[in-house]
Design a protein around this nucleic acid. Structure first.
Length: 352
RNA sequence: UGCCCGGUGGUGUAAUGGUAACACAUCGGCCUUUGGAGCCGAGUUUCGAGGUUCGAGUCCUCGCCGGGCAG
């Protein structure tokens, strides 16, 4: 079978491709060019070179897809807009939806690939309605980033790494890609290096350096900040001008209208209810009535029991059984039942 | 002007006359397929000038600064 593989140049996607090659499939590697040179940690040409090298090593054809203009428009602009609105964007989810499982998927499909594989740690399950599942337990679970992918494509996706235990992945790595040196894993958003984020915001935001007040939950002014887009809910660092007393301070809210950053204790971050918009249901049909599910509000959040109520306007009301720390506008809320990712939505407002 | 308190890292505080400590902040590392968080580690401090004492953040004198009382 002809299978397309999304190849980033990293270890996981290479391994996924290697596995499919070993199984005897006709594999084509697709590499997306997304990041503008100005902001990237690794120059795109260097990354492309890595991908070519992997292609040679595996003996597969490599195709490049230039998505830079659309990426700029659809992911980076949205990223900047979120900061402007005092939200905390999650570009990975958007990029997965629009590019890896969007543009790249469509390109591979048009070129005759029956399936698309990626190196994500996740699983799919066929059936009347295909489902997206978490990987086999000790593996890190990356399904959070996949909640927004188009449901109709689930049956044509392959996650070759999601079904095998980590020790086997290491073994596979030695067998299939001996001597392969993974690039440094540590990174920010893949299209921005650490310095890139700052530069990007300076380029993209009007008057980025406008100072404002740091206030506590009762409105008392505690200090000054250099610009409210440097802050996100739950953040602890960068509050030096307000600190010194009352233990560690955390950002509770960012209010761009008044250019204020509201801070408080860690316990002030806990909230039970929030509203989420633009839901995407993957493994179940969109529900008409309230359902119970376990909701995860950030990548590393241990999902918690909740009730999800669909509203007339298409948004969702989520209520946790017990308050959770720092639901944050702009982040994804992803719903699970055991191993199954039911769907997800974007956190819009937090009610308390 | 008189009297009374107080002045310790960037901030808030601690230290019977005996190695100046704690929290927050800051910096570095770890963690990490988003932003945060979390974990580990580090640096930095006694308002100034004299004096008493083996030894002063601590006691004494003067000054400077901040607050209070008296008017």
């Amino acid at each position: 079978m002809k299978i397309g593989v999304a190849l980033s140049g990293g270890k996981d996607s290479s391994l996924a491709a290697a596995r499919l090659v070993r199984e005897g499939h006709q594999v084509v590697g697709y590499h997306l060019l997304l990041s503008p040179e100005r902001y990237s940690a690794i120059p795109p040409s260097v990354q492309a070179g890595k991908v070519r090298e992997i292609g040679e090593r595996l003996g597969i054809e490599i195709r490049f897809i230039d998505g830079r203009e659309a990426f700029r428009r659809e992911v980076m602009d949205a990223f900047a807009a979120a900061y402007r609105a005092g939200e905390t964007p999650n570009p990975c989810v958007l990029c997965n939806r629009l590019f890896k499982f969007g543009l790249l998927f469509e390109t591979a499909e048009a070129e005759g690939c029956r399936k698309l594989a990626t190196g994500h740690y996740a699983r799919t399950e066929d059936g009347v309605r295909p489902r997206l599942l978490k990987p086999i337990p000790p593996c890190r679970d990356e399904t959070y980033f996949l909640f927004a992918i188009p449901p109709g494509r689930l049956d044509r996706l392959l996650f070759p790494l999601g079904g095998i235990p980590p020790e086997d992945i290491r073994k596979l790595s030695r067998e299939l890609l001996p001597g392969f040196l993974p690039p440094p894993v540590s990174q920010e958003a893949c299209f921005l290096s650490r310095t890139g984020l700052r530069r990007f915001l300076e380029d993209s935001l009007p008057r980025p350096e406008e100072p404002g007040e740091i206030v506590d939950v009762s409105g008392t002014v505690l200090g000054e900040h250099p610009g409210c887009h440097f802050y996100t809910v739950g953040q602890r660092k960068g509050l030096s001008s307000a600190s010194g007393k009352r233990g560690p301070l955390y950002v509770i809210r960012v209010v761009p209208e008044s250019n204020r950053v509201v801070v408080g204790e860690k316990s002030d971050l806990r909230a039970r209810r929030f509203r989420a918009v633009s839901p995407n249901w993957l493994s179940i049909p969109p529900p008409d009535d309230p359902i119970t599910a376990w909701t995860k509000i950030r990548y590393t959040h241990p999902e918690a029991e909740s009730r999800i109520t669909p509203r007339e306007d298409g948004s969702l009301e989520i209520e946790f059984t017990s308050p959770q720390e720092a639901p944050t506008p702009g982040q994804a809320a992803v719903f699970y039942r055991h191993d199954v990712l039911l769907g997800g939505a974007w956190i819009k407002t937090v009610d308390g």
